[in-house]
Nucleic acid binder design. Structure first.
Lengths: 139, 139
DNA sequence: CTCTTAATTTATACTGATTCTAAATTAAGA
DNA sequence: TCTTAATTTAGAATCAGTATAAATTAAGAG
């Protein structure tokens, strides 16, 4: 009598080949892919996959809390299967996004918090990745 | 021989009524408006304003560093005339965005920073604003 | 003040991301 | 094996934002 460990396997969710392929691609993925990137990667495994299914699945997983929608890129959503508290390092040059696995606790003085009940935070660090640093030096 | 204090007034930039109206609306504005909100607010003052001009002006101001484009809202860009280092408090219920005027310095251990050259950070605090807290209690 | 010109505005067409719709398919469980 | 609700699908629709090209105009020269 095992509890299902993953969304998509929970009661009321069907174990479709499309979902399994998307989940397999996402599992442990740290590249913060967009819907389009997910579609292209997964359609290679499951030829029948449609774009609409990618969106459906991503929305279902997000609502179920099994996936985090990142609002980091001004032009599209990116998806992160790591739902634990962590942060991101963004290369301002090539736009690569890298995980910062630490939790960061920041205390805001009450005056600053303006009576908000604070539940969490997300830090985006902006910088230049090693590869881009090298490029810049060569120019 | 005054230096122009604002973008849009600098050499090579024309002082058009549309720009002046947009700048006037943005000046000191802490509501983090979207392009659409800006258009609606400003078209009331200057009937001739077009949507395209709003985008043109916002892009010009952003490139010139007089305006910050916020990537906070998954569905559209928001604009912040406060270009100094600060952070944001986001109500998860009503989506209101409030400024956190403090600078926050976070040191990342080298191992975590993965050799990125870090230039800055932006913290999003997620919480529930006072108004929404009251609502929730009443439900 | 008038002229010239490059910057700007505008309407409109277009793109790209995402959502919606409605019909066809299918996993799951009786 | 059957039934049914969940899912997939193609394609249309929507929405934010960008591109285009013609018309307008601010600004500086004379």
């Amino acid at each position: 009598m095992k509890e299902p460990t993953k969304i998509g396997f929970a009661k009321g969710f069907k174990r479709t080949p499309q979902r399994l392929a998307i989940l397999a691609y996402l599992e442990g993925n740290t590249s913060h892919p967009s819907a389009e990137e997910i579609f292209h990667a997964v359609v290679g495994k499951d030829r029948t996959l449609s774009f609409a299914t990618v969106y459906n699945t991503l929305n279902t997983l997000s609502k179920a809390g099994a996936l985090r929608e990142l609002t980091i890129d001004p032009s599209r959503k990116r998806y992160d299967p790591n739902t634990g508290a962590h942060h991101h390092l963004i290369c301002m040059s090539c736009k690569k996004v890298v995980d910062v696995p630490e939790e960061i606790s920041i205390d805001l003085p009450k005056t600053v918090a303006q009576n908000f009940f604070i539940l969490g935070n997300h830090v985006e660090f902006y910088g230049v990745c090693p590869a881009c640093r090298k490029m810049q030096k060569n120019v």
